[in-house]
Amino acid sequence: MSAGTVEIRRSGSTAVLTLRREAKLNALSTHLERALLRALDDKAVTTSRAVVLTGGDKVFSAGADTGELREMTPEAITAYYRDSGAVYEKVAALPQPTVSAIAGYCLGGGLELALATDFRVADPTAQLGLPEVGIGILPSSGGTYRTVRAVGPARARELVLRGRRLTAAEAHAWGLLTEVSEQGAHLGHALRLAEELAALPPLAVAVTKRVIDVAADSPRESSLLLEQLAYASLNQATHPPTEDPT
């Protein structure tokens, strides 16, 4: 297997995607991002009922490969977000429930990738942080936006501006993590959660994911209307009216 690839396998109804750039701590190069984009279109993923994303037993991802972006012009960076940089939003837009299984470093772009999933399960060894401002940039693959939504503006300032690095226990207490597993059990824990979610009606899951995302940024009246319209559509799909025999 060449460096910078993504391993795809199925575990029951769940597709498991493993970042395979261990020699570089799974740094998110454009090559690895493109590999992940291709993996998301693989039949094993598109036909799954849930998706687990992991970096393996020792590290999730130490961050973006900033060396690739350092010399880019603004025009080239704009093109990057249309190309491999689109992978973060593609993960966020998956209709299936998604779970990150995290061990070791989950920093910078790695944390941004984990934040794009619906749930995050971490080994006690996990370290989470957003160090970008310290090197003169900022989290720009949805990281700033999703961190504010996950922990609120005050704690987002701690993470983004001060570059604070959190242990798994701290990240769980702050709301960045869904659960902390026992040592070495993060992937198994994530798979059990994924299979629990995979057992739910897929259309209801996909629609509800979108309603939750929109509700987080919408006024009360708009959110309530969207809930009601979504309910009506799902009810129609689940319990279609029977024809009147008369």
Rank of each mutant, 00 (worst) to 15 (best):
M1F: 10
A3S: 15
E7V: 11
I8G: 09
I8T: 12
I8P: 10
R9S: 11
A15G: 11
V16A: 07
L17Q: 02
T18P: 04
R20M: 08
E22G: 15
S29E: 07
H31W: 08
E33G: 02
R34P: 13
L37Q: 15
R38G: 07
D41I: 03
R49Y: 09
G55V: 00
G56S: 13
K58C: 05
V59G: 09
A62I: 00
A64S: 09
E71L: 15
I77Q: 02
T78F: 08
Y80H: 06
D83K: 03
V87A: 05
V87R: 09
Y88N: 10
V91Q: 00
Q96F: 13
Q96E: 15
P97L: 08
T98C: 14
V99Y: 11
S100M: 10
A101M: 10
A101D: 07
G104C: 04
C106R: 02
G108F: 14
G110A: 03
L111H: 06
L113Q: 14
A114C: 00
T117A: 02
L128K: 07
L128S: 02
G129Q: 13
L130R: 02
E132N: 11
G136C: 10
I137E: 08
L138K: 02
S141N: 11
S141Q: 15
Y145G: 06
R146Q: 14
T147Y: 10
T147W: 01
T147L: 07
V148M: 08
R149M: 10
V151A: 01
V151E: 01
A154V: 15
R155P: 09
A156C: 09
A156S: 14
E158L: 15
E158P: 07
V160T: 01
R165S: 10
A169P: 04
A169F: 09
E170F: 12
A173M: 01
L176N: 00
L176F: 12
L177D: 02
V180N: 11
V180A: 03
H186S: 13
G188S: 10
G188V: 03
H189I: 03
L191K: 14
A194I: 12
E196V: 14
A199R: 01
L200A: 11
L200W: 12
P201V: 15
P202V: 02
K209R: 14
R210H: 13
D213Y: 06
V214M: 12
V214N: 13
D217F: 08
S218K: 02
S218V: 12
P219R: 10
L225H: 06
L226S: 04
E227Q: 12
L229F: 12
A230H: 09
A232I: 05
A232K: 12
H239V: 11
E243H: 11
P245D: 05
